[in-house]
Amino acid sequence: MSPEWGALKMKTLKGIVFAIGLALLAATPAAAQERSARKQGFELATGSGKRILVFRPSVSVGSQSTGGMFEPNGDWTEKATTNIRVSLERLQSRLGNSVVAAPEAYGDDAQRLQEHMALFAAVSQAVIEYQFFRGNRLPTKKRDNKNDVFDWSLGTGVASLPGAQDADYGLFIYNRDAYGSTGRKILQVLALLGPGIAVKSGEHAGYAGLVDLKTGDLLWLNADGAMGGDVRDAGGSEKRVRQLLEEFPGADLKPAQ
């Protein structure tokens, strides 16, 4: 192999790496879209005397198979659940209002809470898909948007969740992380180099929402399908929880000096 040929190959390789980088950069439309919204007219001042009930966050961590299927990982989920709970406990005192942890739920209560959490995730996904993503807005929601209306609800069933009677607002937190397997990452590169198709490797969805515990209306939402922070380690979880609670009404989450 001549040195010229080697240099040529090296340059081509660099070019391909650059191309992949550029394409990956373009593959994050989330950056260009909204991530947070607040119901029109909703204000929550610091020290307002309102009580916020924090439900135990829903956390699931796993890997994404080559075919794109989610494969849960018990060990990662357990670590992430603990990490997120610790970070949340540290940060919730700075949410600006009285925060109480929801009591442990059992039996039917636990089942109802789990179903409301799943509904919260579905509503968050619908907000991302049909409201935050401007190009994909539903016509009826588009007209609402002209008046800056953010109108989504979990329904009045939230009033019967454990602890709801003694609080004004409920904080729902949902995380789902799927780390791309080696096979998936290889597929991502091959699909890009071959037919030029973008294959997503990994999924990092995080949603945090404040819900009116009387009406079920979503008052504030911070939701993104491409969150930062590796929830499997403590530092990453702290980053994730901060990102989830960014712009929380009435909060001051800036790192302490």
Binding site: T12, G15, I16, F18, A19, I20, L22, A23, A26, A27, P29, F133, G135, N136, L192, L193, G196, I197, A198
Partner: peptide, 16 residues
């Protein structure tokens, strides 16, 4: 290489 990148980007653009 640039064409490849552009093509890849075009595929990734959210469909209208």
């Amino acid at each position: 290489v640039m064409l490849l990148a552009l093509l890849a980007m075009a595929f990734q653009a959210p469909l209208a």
